[in-house]
Write a protein that binds this DNA or RNA. Structure first.
Lengths: 217, 217
DNA sequence: GTATCCTGACTGAGCGCTCAGTCATTACCC
DNA sequence: GGGTAATGACTGAGCGCTCAGTCAGGATAC
């Protein structure tokens, strides 16, 4: 995982003066912690294990964070940065072509596929964060959903999407986000029946409205 | 919460002979634990707190379960039983009328609304279960999704739903499940913008395919 | 009397975090 | 340049405490 945790990271206190060093060490720490948290979960991972996996001493770990929860927060921020980066990069590639929505969905689902474990981690361990930071992590979700809202709005304005009011568009954006996540937290079941390509195709049809029912109203 | 945890519950060992008593005590324990787990999470809740809230001693608690994780398992099973009961009850009411799918969605989303905290709990704490039981809890999710699969299949056969292959129907069932859950795990955001009635209406439109895009293929 | 249910003081493993001390590097002085 | 002082990154043994789980013994029912 690359270091995109530049902004929010500043809120986590450190004893170390050299900012470059802080970034580098925290990158080590986050990478180690992500691996361990995915493997055994936050609660069953000890601070010593994190330190060891990061290649530093337990004492030094606490020069760079004030608590174990700080580590989890850094991890969550890093994951979000990664996802957001993935999505915006994908969007750039897509915007030029046609069939923007379908292409966007495809790219997004692929990001979710790649980041499965990480996204799952956020669903499972956010609760362990202190109130204030939990809130921030949740707002990151909204931020990513916001990217979809923007795209959908553009499409609606340019007429490539049936007119929708703001409320509908926003909810559809949430649906897209969550249906991407569904691939991560029901992966254990879904992969038995669908490849990621199946999944992309079927979900795209569903979201684009090729899907269900006739109405009697 | 009523006691619907009759089957799977037998797998959790107890020292107490009187089965009635076991059921009654475990009900106390589960009710107490649910409340505490929702409030502070599994890891921050002590076994003592559970015992006290259940009105029994710590020693007695361990006559009815073998570990703290047992309690979590009982809680998960109870919640699932409750949700399943809610859904099947709702379905019975619905099947007679018309517009079955829309009515089913409505009832299901209302169940999710009522059981918000409980469903969220399962998302957040399943990880803390030992492997084998985690699997069972996950399979309960599939079971509930299965109810939707059944209903959709009936509708498809009776022609009230455009023909869909098995794969599509199954995935739509999963989507419905998860979009219900979304109301619980994004509740903190969604309630700012939508009432549950708004949510039901918009999601129903979305799922029934009144929703999005035109295609260029 | 004995089988069963129940109590709560007790144990000890485990873990987050600290802090006294080490060492490499830099800054400063003459 | 060489001697000295200051800085701050780094170490890891161990402290303090929490908390799941136990067990010896008491209460109750029949």
């Amino acid at each position: 995982m690359t270091n995109r945790n530049s902004l929010r990271t500043k809120d986590v206190p450190t004893q170390v003066k050299n900012q470059e060093l802080v970034d580098q060490r925290r990158l080590q720490i986050v990478n180690a912690a992500v691996r361990l948290f995915i493997e055994k979960g936050f609660h069953k991972t000890t601070t010593r294990e994190i330190a060891q996996a990061a290649g530093i001493s337990i004492g030094l770990l606490y020069e760079y964070v004030a608590s174990k929860e700080d580590v989890l927060y850094l991890v969550c921020e890093a994951i979000h940065a990664e996802v957001e980066h993935g999505v915006t990069e994908a969007l750039k590639r897509v915007k030029k072509g046609r069939d923007v929505l379908a292409e966007m969905l495809r790219e997004y689902f692929l990001v979710c596929d790649r980041m499965s474990d990480h996204i799952l981690l956020i669903y499972q361990e956010t609760r362990a964060l202190p109130q204030q930071w939990r809130k921030r992590v949740l707002e990151n979700e909204v931020k990513i959903t916001g990217i979809f809202v923007e795209t959908l709005r553009h499409l609606a304005e340019s007429g490539d999407l049936p007119h929708k009011d703001k409320q509908s568009i926003e909810l559809i954006a949430h649906n897209i986000s969550v249906l991407g996540h569904m691939w991560t937290f029901r992966r254990w079941f879904l992969t038995r029946h669908y490849s990621i390509e199946d999944y992309i195709k079927l979900q795209t049809d569903f979201i684009l409205g090729k899907s269900a029912g006739k109405h009697s109203d």
